[in-house]
Structures are given as C-alpha cells and as structure tokens.
Amino acid sequence: PRGVPDMDTDRVWLCFYRLLQLFSTCAAFSLVASLGTGMGAVSHWSMFIWCFCFVITLITFIVQLGEYQPSLPFSGKSFLFTSACLAAVSCLSASIMYAITYIQFLPHGHFRDQATAATTFSCIACVLYALEGAFLWLLFLGETTFYFATIHGLFKLLETLVACIIFSFISNTSLYLHQPALEWCVAVYSICFTLGAVAMLLKLIKSENRLHTFFPRFLLGQTVLSVLLYASALVLWPLYQFNGQFGGQPQRSSDASCSDELPSTLCIWDQKLTVAILTAINLLIYVADMAYWIHFVFLRH
C-alpha cells in the first residue's frame, strides 16, 4: 500500500530520535553522577530529570519497536507528543539551572569541563525532544483523535510545561523551607500538577467515553480548584518573599547572593522573582482554561 513506506519512514525517524535521546540523557546523568559528593539540590534535580527522561524514552522505544502499542489502553499519539514536550522543557530547565547555579562555582579544570559536557548533552537532548515533538505535531495534526490538537489539550499541556519550569527553580529548598506559607505554595504547585496529570491520563486512556457527562464537569472542577490554589500562591509567594514585614527581601541589593563580587549566576532573589512571574503566567492559563470549560459545560449543553 502507498501509506506503508511513509509509516515505515516515520517509525525509523522516531527510533533515530530516541536512540540519540537515550545516549544524550544517559551521558548527562553519568557525567554528573561521576563528579561525586557535594552536589546541591539543583544537581540532584537535574539528575532526576535526565534519569526520568531516559526511562520514559526507553519504555517508549521498546513499546514502539515491539509494536505493542495497539494493546495499550491509551492514545499512543497523544502520549508520545506529551512525553516529548515535557522532556524537552524538563531538559531545558535542567540545562539552564545546572549551568547558572553550579558550573559557575567550579574552578577551571577537569570537574568544570565534565559538568560543562553534561550541560551540553542536556541541551542536545532538549533539542532532540523538541524536534520529536514538532515531528509528531506535523504528523498527527490533521487527526481528530489527536488530543493536543484541541483547545483544552493545549491548555493542559501549557499548564504542565510551566509547572515543570517552576519545579526546576523550587528544587532549591532554601527558597521556601523557612516559611509555612511558602511551603503551602510549593504544595499548590504539586497538587495542581498532579491533578492536571490525572486529567491528561484519563484523556489518554479514553476514560471520558465511559464517564460521559461527568468528565467535563470533573475537568471544570479541577480547573476551578487550580485557579483558587494558584491565586493563593500568587498572593503568598511575593508577600513572604519580597515584603519585609513578613521576613522577605524587598530589594535585590539586600540579597548577598546577588552581589557583583560573586560569579555571574542567577541569585536567590532572581529565582524567587522568576517563580512569582511563572505563577502569574500559569494562573492566567488556568483562568483561560476555566473560561473554556464553563462555556463548554453550561453554555454549550
């Protein structure tokens, strides 16, 4: 048949991408792991990202190579695109955070070269995952069963991607462990990320066909709850990070890690500000998502 050679070519390209992804993530993880003890929270978080991406890619590679996909209970196309996008953003955040919070403090020599090589492999992995995501998007865009070609699918993907970037910054526990209100903000990010992952999983395994009218209402409730939780985080995080009355630092110059005498790096105050900005961005995405589901549930039916 005419479509068979094209499908075989697409499968070859996907296998080629994944082999390179496996090599890049494994190389990044191995290089950092071999540096030994003394690694901070960012290093451990980066290693977790590379290890997690390696495992997911390996499982996906085995499933596709063995042609087990028809027997799986979820939509393989949506899962492949989701995992590629999440892996791309995760590797990008790991590359940036590891480079600006760890490599800068290493003296010139073997250890710094090794850490730089790990960051390079992480960047390569990010590019490979992004290329796979773009390839899959073009391949499946015209299909109505492709979840992330829909508006609510894009919203869920954006919410998850921004949350992953937030996690890369709050892996530095010194940003929040001193205040219960800030720990609540971290709990908010985790809860909303988990709820979003459950919603996407239900969609990928096509459970909405069994839940019928309940599934849209579940998504609306999940989105409304996320909006309320993120709104509390948007208030509490800047209040306790930048207001002097609550133990915060209102000015960047008051943070010793932002001194010009230190090596160029993203200081603690800048990390706090970045999390605040990302919180506001994700709240706006959740609000737009909520408006969509309110229209879908109450106005369309």
Rank of each mutant, 00 (worst) to 15 (best):
P1M: 15
D6W: 05
Y17K: 01
Y17T: 07
G40Y: 02
A41E: 13
S43H: 04
S46T: 09
W50K: 01
C51S: 08
I59N: 09
T60G: 12
F61W: 09
E67S: 10
Y68G: 12
F79Q: 02
C85I: 01
A87V: 01
A88G: 03
S93G: 06
Y102D: 14
Q104S: 12
L106N: 12
H108R: 15
D113Y: 11
D113C: 11
A115T: 06
A117T: 09
A118C: 04
G133F: 01
L141K: 15
L141I: 02
A149P: 00
A149Y: 02
L161A: 08
F169K: 12
S171N: 13
S174K: 15
Q179D: 04
W184Y: 13
C185I: 07
V186C: 15
Y189M: 13
A197W: 12
L201S: 14
K206P: 00
S207I: 05
S207D: 05
F215L: 08
L220W: 06
L220F: 07
Q222K: 11
L225E: 03
A233R: 06
L236S: 05
Q241I: 05
P250M: 12
Q251S: 11
S259C: 06
P263W: 13
Q271T: 00
L273A: 13
A276E: 05
I277P: 08
L283Q: 05
I294L: 12
H295V: 07
V297Y: 03
